[in-house]
Write a protein that binds this DNA or RNA. Structure first.
Lengths: 336, 336
DNA sequence: CTGAAAGCGCTTACAG
DNA sequence: CTGAAAGCGCTTACAG
């Protein structure tokens, strides 16, 4: 059996004081309570000798704060890289003296409701509401009026009432602009309504290009897999598309794009620059190695709990830079 | 502000009974307490109307069981695939009406001790002690005499005192045996003492081959990266090595092996079969596609909390089958 | 069949 | 400067 933990009462008795006094010195409130230095020392020593550690459940019951937060996500723990968001959240929580509960809903609203109820029953102080893909979400009713920070997702609202931490989708466009691209820039990927991440991504790209006075030349529509991208790009090229730069929504799409360009006799990056998202293993295996932009999962997680637990958690949106791994698929465009 | 939760007292008052009575019916102990059916109905209705949910912290303080468990790992949340172990643990915990705390130590004993202390202060009921790589570990003293299940790790001991859930490392050898291989089977990877996973893996392979009366032909020593594997295999081939089957400790090593074999004019799987571990994305990109064995992370996690929370958690070792993804790198050996 | 009471381990006005 | 007391929201012998 585990060793019995000493209680505050035991500490007090050993120190020859009351529980109140012991509690105050242990809480560091000996100043305002004006505990005699001598009593203080006795308590400290007793606590040390008994290896006293406060029962946090008891404390929480009294104070109404548990110093625990819950991260509820659709399916973050299962994604290869998104798990880092958990890691980041964990680290920040610990740094703030909090512990973190994790929960996965697999996108099922019923599961979600039950999960949140469970957390609430345990009196968690606050929530991180996280999404695997960057997207708009509806906040569960149970979370209204509670401290919540959104991780990798947003809530549609006239005036933001919560804080969101999302990736800054401007990186890709900026990279191409910096390389000197001004025209013939296309996005390869699905632009449909369903996939919110791609919409955000597309919006970010357009916006960044726009501020530089550049127009996105178009979108090659396909889903997020190599075959689909390959087919779509082949077809587009056959139809006369003459891209100078292709922004792929992920590395798998880039794989299909590579194939299509190669078959069309187009050199990467000589004729066409290619840039992508995810920075998966694949990016390094491709030839030429693919310049790819990853989601800053760890930072998103860290920052989310940081702002949740930080001094002032104001509504708004924090966009975190997306780390770019520059390899060999982007070059200055050839002069016309 | 969040809506005020109703308390047991309020339910009791609304039902016109004492807290005791309310508590008993809500706990379903109306039988042994012989509460009148009428009183029972009143309580149930009151609870419903007030949307009563018990404060689990208060209950725990009284009963000494919190229905929370903690998973402490070295660095599971950060690994691309190991995160699934968390997912599996989560699911099993929920299924048992428990909630899961997660903690990462990054392998630092000081961090570990503090983390466990934090969990203990929160009165968690039990622990999962998890490791990123399959390996032998020392159990932190704080965890002695407490309910613990080891996830993907083992404790060296004369008589096992805890339960370990680990992958069954026999799969690779078995696959080759089933394909008809009997000789010229080599392992490519580091056999040094440091990397426990490879030791377990090597032991598993030898054992499985041994029971079939087959001897491992040797080990090509290298570290777990493509370049090192490439160099090592090139050198070995130059020295006259004539393998019929190569077991790579992971997919990256397999990549190096592919290159080395190709340069030596050896066909896969015609001349040499190759099998590997991890089943990463890479396995599908290689040509021929690589047959690879993955760690059953989700199942390891699930099973660990399942046995922790299950009826009888006896000391011992559970070995979970490693799923094999058969592709095109293993074939029957050519007849001599 | 039901209620009054103690107690889990804390914190915090309050009184002296 | 310090202690007695109440109370956080529950559960559970105990008495009737």
């Amino acid at each position: 059996m585990p060793p019995q933990r000493a209680t505050l009462l035991q500490v007090a008795q050993r120190a020859g004081v009351s529980r109140s006094t012991a509690s105050f010195v242990l809480a560091g409130r000996h100043q305002d309570m004006r505990i005699s230095e001598e009593a203080r020392q006795r308590v400290l020593r007793a606590a040390q000798e008994l290896d006293y550690r406060p029962n946090l459940m008891a404390r929480s019951l009294r104070t109404k704060v548990t110093k625990t937060i819950a991260l509820v996500s659709d399916t973050i723990a299962s994604d290869p890289y998104a798990g880092r968001a958990i890691h980041g959240s964990l680290a920040a929580a610990i740094a703030h003296g909090h512990l973190l509960f994790i929960g996965e809903t697999d996108g099922d609203p019923v599961v979600e409701e039950r999960l949140i109820a469970d957390f609430l029953d345990r009196q968690v102080d606050a929530f991180i509401y996280a999404s695997m893909f960057t997207q708009y979400v509806r906040l569960p009713k149970q979370l209204r009026d509670r401290p919540v920070v959104l991780l990798n997702c947003l809530i549609r609202a006239a005036r933001p009432i919560h804080h969101s931490i999302i990736p800054d989708e401007l990186t890709a466009a900026r990279t191409l602009l910096e390389a000197g691209h001004r025209k013939g820039i296309y996005v390869v990927g699905h632009s449909g309504k369903g996939v919110f991440a791609s919409r955000e991504r597309l919006a970010g790209i357009k916006e960044e290009l726009g501020t530089a006075g550049v127009r996105l030349a178009g979108v090659v529509d396909c889903n997020w897999w190599p075959d689909s991208a390959y087919d779509a790009v082949c077809r587009a090229l056959a139809d006369g598309l003459a891209p100078r730069a292709l922004i792929c929504v992920n590395d798998r799409v880039a794989l299909g794009v590579y194939q299509a360009l190669r078959e069309a006799g187009l050199a990467i990056p000589g004729d066409v620059s290619v840039i992508s998202f995810d920075d998966s293993e694949l990016a390094a295996w491709l030839r030429p190695q693919l310049t790819s932009i990853s989601l800053p999962h760890y930072e998103l997680g860290w920052r989310a709990v940081e702002t949740l637990l930080g001094p002032s958690c104001e509504p708004g949106i924090t966009r975190l830079p997306m780390p770019i791994r520059s390899r060999h698929s982007v070059a200055k465009p050839a002069v016309e």
